[in-house]
């Protein structure tokens, strides 16, 4: 699909700049040009597509649906799936949480949404396709959805309502199922388009510097680290690799889009994919800034339980990936 781009990158580096194909610099530069353009194209496509979906399924509609429908246990999966198509901004996590609680949606279902939404977001998907290909991306999306669903069910069964902050408990006590159908603003597709496009540009503006720096570092590493370099240190049978990678990943957040390109290079040099996916889930899905925001609605104990359950599920899925792949 991107052969044409490889030709352009080859032409730029080997013909126009006249660099030697055998040189590390040339290889790194070629990798950088090809990867940057490819990933930017994919990001635009994915973010735009998600923008369209989201324009027709805004969060209020999702809440309304989850609140009104009897789903007989499927609500965790539905919430998790909705999390995929809803773009996530960590500063919206608190209003979202309150909105769900107010709509009488069970805490565990809310958690399922809150876990999947950042974990499987449009930026992560775009980067994943570009860096790891469609198959690994699908695997990541499916495991992200399952992880949100299962963590949500576990958290629901822990009966955590008592650990909400007092003002949220008041809201919980007055929660009501939504009675009316959500009325969306009637807009034609052409009316929606400029709004969606502005959002695409806004999202891109925020992440492009990180992506480029990440790919640049990845490009340098790609040229200089020998093949199979990490296999010596991080073999699949090293039991501590997955938990270590996951725990390391939780504090990293703002530069998630810069970290993914580097992880891709590490995988190509021999780090097991399961370990890498666990790491990336931690980077993308759990973040300390989000935890700080959640303090408004949850006690520290609840945040700790929430993060521990998700971390544990990420570690387990990392092991599973290493066994399956």
């Amino acid at each position: 699909m991107f052969d044409w781009l490889q030709h352009i990158a080859d032409w730029l580096v080997y013909d126009l700049l006249d660099l030697d194909q055998e040189q590390h610099l040339a290889e790194a530069l070629n990798f950088f040009i090809y990867d940057t353009v490819k990933i930017l194209i994919l990001l635009v496509i994915v973010i735009f597509f998600m923008g369209i979906v989201n324009s027709y399924f805004p969060i209020d509609k999702v809440k309304n649906y989850l609140s009104r429908k009897k789903l007989y246990g499927l609500e965790y999966l539905m919430a998790s799936l909705f999390g995929v198509v809803t773009p996530f901004c960590s500063c919206s996590s608190v209003p979202l949480f309150i909105g769900f609680v107010r709509g009488g949606i069970p805490l565990g279902v809310t958690f399922a949404f809150l876990i999947t939404s950042p974990l499987v977001n449009e930026v992560a998907i775009g980067l994943f396709i570009g860096l790891f290909g469609i198959k690994t991306t699908l695997l990541y999306i499916i495991s992200g959805v399952l992880l949100g669903t299962i963590s949500g069910i576990i958290l629901q069964n822990l009966k955590l309502e008592g650990y909400l902050t007092p003002w949220v408990k008041d809201i919980l006590a007055n929660a009501q199922k939504e009675q009316d159908l959500f009325k969306a603003e009637k807009q034609t597709f052409t009316q929606r388009l400029p709004i969606i496009w502005t959002e695409v540009l806004n999202i891109l503006k925020g992440i492009v510097p990180y992506v480029i720096v990440g790919i640049a570092i990845g490009g340098i590493m790609h040229g200089y680290i020998p093949e199979g370099f990490f296999e010596k240190f991080m073999a699949k049978d090293n039991l501590f690799a997955v938990p270590l990678a996951t725990i390391l990943s939780v504090p990293m957040y703002s530069n998630a889009s810069g970290i993914l390109p580097i992880v891709q290079v590490l995988v190509s040099k021999g780090i097991p994919l399961g370990t890498a996916i666990a790491f990336m889930m931690g980077v993308v899905g759990l973040s300390l800034p989000e935890a700080m925001l959640l303090k408004k609605v949850m006690t520290l104990k609840l945040i700790a339980i929430f993060f521990s359950v998700v971390t544990l599920c990420i570690i387990i899925s990392g092991y599973l990936f290493n066994i399956i792949l």
Binding site: I59, D60, K63, C89, C91, S92, V94, P95, L96, I98, G99, F100, R102, W167, I171, K296, V297
Partner: peptide, 13 residues
């Protein structure tokens, strides 16, 4: 203030 914000019944900021 989030408590004030939530009086407007919004879910995204």
């Amino acid at each position: 203030d989030i408590v004030e914000i939530m009086k407007f019944n919004i879910m995204t900021t």
